[in-house]
Design a binder for these strands. Structure first.
Length: 489
RNA sequence: GGCCCCGUCGUCUAGCGGCCUAGGACUCUGGCUUCUCAAGUCAGCUACGAGGGUUCGAAUCCCUUCGGGGCUACCA
C-alpha cells in the first residue's frame, strides 16, 4: 500500500494528558523517538487536549517536563515550535471546524440530531438482538422538512462521518495486512454538539496537516484506524500520502491487567522521585516489546536510536516487571562516574535534610559515595545509608540493641576503644589491621561477631557501608565517641 | 454478544523448517567470596497453551480449539 520511499520520516507522539504520563505512554514516546532518530527523521510532539474535561494545564506541563527529563527531545512541538504549529489541539479549533464543514459540504459528513438518550435506546435494542451496537444511520439522509422540525424542537446536532459500504485495508508495520469491514465501523461523530472536535477528527486532520509519515501508537487504537483513514479520504489525501501505521503491544501490569494511571507506580514522576535514572527507565521500557537481538540488553539512548527498528518490535503484550527495572537501574548506577553519581545523589540528600549542601558536606559525600555505589538500586536509598556520617550521635536501631548490650559486645567495644585511642594515622587500613589483631587474633572472635558490635556502635545499624572505611570517614574523634556511648547503653 | 489483536521458562525475550534434548536477562534456590548488606562468581530450577494436519524433519507453515486482551462513547 503506501510507502515511505521519497518521504522523509516524521513520527509523532501525541498524548492526551489526562493524568501524569505513565509507563505505557512513555514506552510509546520512546519508540516514536527512537524510530525518528534511527531514520534521521523528525520527532513531533503534539498535545491532544480536545477532551477539555479531563486534560489540564498541569498535566500538559508535566508531560512536557517528563519527556525532557527522559531525554526524549523533539524537533517540532511545544516550546521548540515548528512550521506546522500550533501543537496544542485546543489552539487549532478553527482548523477542525473548517474541515468539518467541508466534509458536510462534500456530503462525507452530515448533521445528526439524535439525542444521547435515543442513541442509547438504539444500542440497547441492538445488544438485546445480539447485533453489533452502533449508529443506525437514522440521520444520514434527512429531508429539509425533518431538519427544520428537529431545529424547531431545539435539538443540537453533532457532525457525523458517513462510512460508505466496503472495507478499509492497510498494512500495519507490526501486525501485517489489516482489513476492517465497514459493517462493523458505524458512522462516527466528528464534532460534538457544542462544536468541539473529537479525537477522531483532530488526530487525523493534524497528522495530515503536520505531514506525519509514521504513526507508532498503542494497539488500543488499532480498531479506530479505519475511521482515521476515512478522514484522510474526505480530506482528499492521496493514498500514497497516508501515514503508515504501526500498533505497539500493550504494557500490562504485573497482575496482567492493563496498566492504568490509578496505580501510583505507573507514573513516571514516581520513578523520578524514587531515584531511577532516565536512561534505566528508557532501557527497560525499550525491552518491553522490542529487543536488539544477539542476547543484548544493556543499551544507551544513543545505541537505542542506532539499533531500533520496527521490524524487531513484538506484537504480543508485555508485563511490567519492577525487579528487572531495578536490576537495570542498579547496573546503570554502578556504571556512573563518581562525579555523575554525586550530581544525582546530592538532591536526594538535600531533600531528605541529611545535608544542606555546604562544600564540606559535599566533600564528605563524594568520599562516601564509592562505598555505597554497588549497594543501592535507586538514589532514594542514599540518605538512609549515609545518614550516620552527618548526625551528631547515632540512635541504635531497636532490633540491633541486643547485639550491642551483651557482655561480649561490651568487651569488644572496650578493647577497640583502647586500641584505637592510640592510633595516630587514622586510615581504614590501619583501623582494620589494629582491630583484626586485637579482636580476631588475640580474642579469637569471629570477624562477623567482633565487627558487628562496632558496626552498630558507629553507624547505629547492623547493615552499613564497609566498617573501616566508614570509621575513617567518620573521623577518629566521632568514632571513639560513638563507641564510648555504646558502652553505657 | 459482535469485530479485531495476541499466546516460548514465574517475567522480559532470542528463535523466522534441520544449528533447539530451545539461548540470554531478571526473579528464585544452592555454593564460592566475605566485617554486615550489596556487588562479583559458579551451579540449579523452570517454557514452545492444547489438538489435528503439511513435511524426511516444526517452537517455526496451515486448521481447529482453549486462554488473555482491546474496541464496540458527543473518551483517547
Amino acid at each position: 500500500m503506501s510507502t515511505t520511499e521519497g518521504r522523509k520520516v516524521k513520527v509523532r507522539f501525541a498524548p492526551s494528558p489526562t493524568g501524569d504520563l505513565h509507563v505505557g505512554n512513555i514506552r510509546t514516546a520512546l519508540f516514536d523517538w527512537a524510530y525518528a532518530r534511527h531514520t534521521g527523521g523528525t520527532f513531533l510532539f503534539r498535545i491532544e487536549d480536545t477532551d477539555t474535561t479531563r486534560v489540564t494545564d498541569e498535566y500538559i506541563n508535566a508531560a512536557i517536563d517528563t519527556l525532557k527529563w527522559l531525554g526524549l527531545d523533539w524537533d517540532e512541538g511545544p516550546e521548540v515550535g515548528g512550521d506546522n504549529g500550533p501543537y496544542l489541539q485546543s489552539m487549532r479549533l478553527d482548523i477542525y471546524a473548517h474541515w468539518a464543514s467541508k466534509f458536510i459540504e462534500q456530503k462525507d459528513a452530515y448533521y445528526c440530531y439524535c439525542s444521547p438518550e435515543e442513541l442509547e435506546t438504539v444500542r440497547e435494542a441492538q445488544r438485546a438482538a445480539n447485533q453489533a451496537p452502533g449508529y443506525n444511520g437514522h440521520c444520514r439522509d434527512l429531508t429539509l422538512d425533518q431538519i427544520e422540525e428537529y431545529k424547531t424542537e431545539g435539538r443540537i446536532p453533532v457532525v457525523r462521518m458517513r462510512m460508505p459500504d466496503g472495507k478499509t485495508t492497510f498494512n500495519d508495520l507490526i501486525r501485517g495486512e489489516m482489513e476492517f469491514d465497514h459493517k462493523f465501523v458505524p458512522d462516527f461523530v466528528l464534532v460534538r454538539g457544542d462544536g468541539s472536535p473529537l479525537y477522531t477528527l483532530a488526530v487525523a486532520v493534524d497528522d495530515v496537516l503536520m505531514k506525519v509519515t509514521h504513526i507508532l501508537r498503542g494497539e488500543d487504537l488499532l480498531s479506530s484506524t479505519p475511521r482515521q483513514i476515512r478522514v484522510y479520504q474526505a480530506m482528499g489525501v492521496a493514498l500514497e500520502e497516508y501515514p503508515i501505521f504501526a500498533h505497539l503491544p500493550f504494557v500490562m501490569g504485573a497482575d496482567n491487567a492493563k496498566l492504568s494511571k490509578r496505580n501510583g507506580e505507573v507514573s513516571i514522576a514516581w520513578y523520578r522521585d524514587k531515584g531511577f535514572l532516565p536512561e534505566a527507565i528508557c532501557n527497560y521500557l525499550a525491552l518491553l516489546g522490542w529487543s536488539p537481538g544477539e542476547d543484548r540488553e544493556n543499551v544507551t539512548m544513543k545505541e537505542l536510536s542506532e539499533l531500533f527498528t520496527v521490524e524487531r518490535v513484538n506484537s504480543s503484550p508485555a508485563r511490567f516487571d519492577m525487579k528487572k527495572l531495578e536490576a537495570i537501574n542498579g547496573d546503570k548506577i554502578r556504571a556512573l562516574t563518581i562525579d555523575e553519581f554525586l550530581t544525582w545523589a546530592l538532591p536526594f540528600l538535600i531533600k531528605s535534610k541529611i545535608i544542606t549542601g555546604t562544600p564540606e558536606e559535599i566533600v564528605l559525600v563524594k568520599r562516601a559515595l564509592p562505598l555505597i555505589q554497588e549497594r543501592i538500586i535507586m538514589f532514594s536509598e542514599i540518605p538512609a545509608m549515609l545518614k550516620f556520617l552527618f548526625v551528631k550521635e547515632v540512635t541504635v536501631e531497636a532490633d540491633s540493641m541486643a547485639q550491642i548490650t551483651d557482655l561480649s559486645a561490651k568487651d569488644v567495644l572496650r578493647r577497640s576503644l583502647k586500641e584505637l585511642e592510640l592510633m595516630s594515622d587514622w586510615t581504614h587500613a590501619n583501623i582494620e589491621a589494629a582491630l583484626r589483631a586485637s579482636l580476631v587474633e588475640e580474642l579469637g572472635l569471629k570477624p562477623r561477631i567482633a565487627f558487628g558490635a562496632l558496626r552498630i556502635a558507629t553507624t547505629g545499624s547492623k547493615i552499613s557501608p564497609p566498617l573501616f572505611e566508614s570509621m575513617e570517614l567518620l573521623g577518629k574523634a566521632a568514632s571513639l565517641a560513638r563507641i564510648s556511648a555504646a558502652l553505657i547503653l
